[in-house]
Design a protein around this nucleic acid. Structure first.
Lengths: 140, 140
DNA sequence: CTGATTGCAAAAATTTTGCAAGCCT
DNA sequence: AGGCTTGCAAAATTTTTGCAATCAG
């Protein structure tokens, strides 16, 4: 338990939030995390979720990402995340193979960072939006 | 002027927002964009800034990015942006060389996207946080 | 015990929306 | 002229804060 090692107390709300992110894993926003955490520990308050997310983020256990339009969502802070995002309609496609790993070593040496994860996003227009919006798109 | 081609009107507030992002270029949040836009066109309203940013984003002219903790900031939607972000203290370091470009062609073919830009972020702990926080960090 | 942690509710901060007036074309 | 755009202010969201009560260690 990283929390303990860092000198923090292990409490039901914190465990609930951790559990939710471990389980659901991906792309939950604070509201959803609150709801699911309450399913585990009913009296969990919203403020505590925010405080816990900040704590876990600082400890490098989770991380917020912003994809498409919606607000922040949280994911485990490990491994890579790769998205292809349409600037026009907001569509998001995940892809796997990524060359970022090959850069980590070099960056770690060069900047003294200890890298835990990465996010690679390409922005552009998806096939559909390419056909329409770009040509001539009156407000909708 | 991309705006015109897409069928939108060229107005002072829109020009002001564009001008601000072209000029300052990087990492301005909506509030700052509003202030600077008002320096150009005083009666610019906050709502218009938000509406314009959304419009320009959909047209693929600008793009919001979220780095570190703070809210969204806007940048021109072209080229790449590369950050090394410390999960602990929020420090952000920019770096240049990037291998993402080599992936664009393949992704475009595979998913039918027309890629305009990319964002590559590595998350981890900076040299300073590595020494302290990880070992034992009572709340501060 | 003791201080970190919590939940609540209020306060802030950030975005969105409704609408009449105004401007671009 | 016609309708997209705008600015304002109010409404809706989202996040942060103050504080007494509680809980983990």
């Amino acid at each position: 338990m990283r929390l303990r090692k860092a000198g923090y107390k292990i409490t039901p709300p914190r465990l609930a939030v951790l559990e939710v992110i471990q389980r659901e894993g991906e792309h939950l926003n604070p509201q959803e995390i609150l709801e699911q955490a309450q399913a585990i520990h009913p009296q969990t308050g919203r403020a505590t979720v925010y405080r816990t997310l900040e704590l876990l983020t600082n400890l490098g256990i989770v991380r917020p990402i912003y994809v498409g339009d919606s607000g922040p969502t949280y994911i485990r802070a490990e491994g890579g995340h790769h998205h292809l995002v349409c600037s026009c309609c907001g569509r998001v496609v995940d892809f796997e193979q990524c060359v970022a790993d090959s850069m980590e070593r070099d960056l770690e040496e060069r900047f003294g960072f200890r890298i835990q994860s990465h996010l690679l996003e390409f922005y552009g227009l998806c096939a559909d939006c390419n056909k329409t919006a770009v040509v001539h798109a009156p407000p909708a």
